[in-house]
């Protein structure tokens, strides 16, 4: 390098990347010469070194970490939530896929019903065969049944579709109409298993009191509870774990506190008779949302 080139290099301060690389690999003599003569660059380099030191200081591993990891490995099972993160992410999408499929099927059913409607079939039985446009007026009991259902109740597909006129009249022969229309339990109601990961959103009157109540109920019933902070002051997240039976019990109690469950996933309040309990461990994510005044 000529003295002219050296002087040119010294004439300007290196940019952030050049300085950062110099901190990691201090081999550039021209840069070293500049830094040794430049207070500004010295200060900047010192700042970078301080940032590195602070980051190292912040991330000091806790005592006994290696031993805990060895024990977890020896146990041969992943006990961390990080494993379940991927499961949760997968499960997160699954309901969306089901919802999309359901919407598609409902649309298809509506279209086919519309195509197959003929004057003869409409006239055959005034109580069963109705044009879609007249279905609600002609079946007030059925409509009331659907409207009164809480979100997430196990409503049979035919039960939801019938008052909307989405099913071919002939297919109604396979659906019990009398008892269902009166709002009683369908004869072929399925029992459900509670999934390993549940996410529920609850609407509550008082967020602070509700947190306290949830904590009390968890302690009383032996459920593990972790709170998570939230950026939104009107929202609180809690992670609980317990058996399916414990969580059904908890959900019943929460509803009894006046909380409103907005999520459709089981366990639903007062639906114990429909559940198939296995005493398996469930991870329950509860989001508490403050009602607007």
């Amino acid at each position: 390098m000529t003295s002219d080139q050296s002087n040119l290099s010294l004439a300007r301060c290196p940019d952030a990347e050049e300085l950062s690389v110099f901190l990691d690999e201090p081999g550039d003599s021209t840069l070293a010469a500049h830094i040794s003569a430049c207070a500004h660059c010295q200060a900047r380099l010192s700042d970078y070194a301080q940032v590195d030191a602070l980051l190292q200081e912040l991330s000091q591993p806790p005592a006994g970490l290696a031993l805990r990891i060895q024990q977890a490995c020896a146990a041969g099972a992943s006990t961390t939530d990080a494993t379940s993160v991927q499961t949760i992410q997968f499960n997160w999408l699954t309901p969306l896929r089901y919802a999309a499929a359901l919407i598609f099927l409902l649309t298809l059913a509506s279209f086919l019903t519309w195509l197959n409607h003929t004057p003869n079939s409409q006239g055959s039985d005034s109580s069963l065969a109705r044009a879609p446009g007249t279905s609600q007026a002609a079946a007030p009991a059925s409509v009331a049944t659907v409207q009164n259902n809480q979100v997430g109740e196990d409503i049979a597909l035919a039960e939801q579709m019938r008052p909307q006129g989405n099913i071919d009249p002939d297919s109604l022969q396979n659906v019990s109409t009398g008892k269902n229309a009166a709002g009683t339990k369908p004869a072929n109601q399925r029992r459900y298993r509670i999934k390993p990961q549940i996410e529920h959103i609850w609407l509550v009157e008082d967020l602070t009191k509700s947190q306290t109540r949830l904590q009390e109920l968890s302690l009383r019933d032996g459920l593990k509870l972790k709170w998570q902070t939230s950026d939104n002051i009107a929202v609180v997240h809690a992670d609980l774990s317990g058996t399916d039976r414990q969580l059904q019990n908890l959900v019943d109690h929460l509803q009894a506190q006046g909380w409103l469950l907005l999520s459709p996933a089981y366990p639903q309040p007062k639906a114990e008779q429909n559940a198939f309990f296995t005493d398996s461990k469930i991870i329950y994510h509860a989001t508490l949302v403050q009602k607007e005044p």
Binding site: S59, A72, G76, S78, T80
Partner: peptide, 14 residues
Amino acid sequence: DAEEVAQDAFVRIY
């Protein structure tokens, strides 16, 4: 979270 991730990583490596 960091400890959970470290532990999970080693269980997977194991």
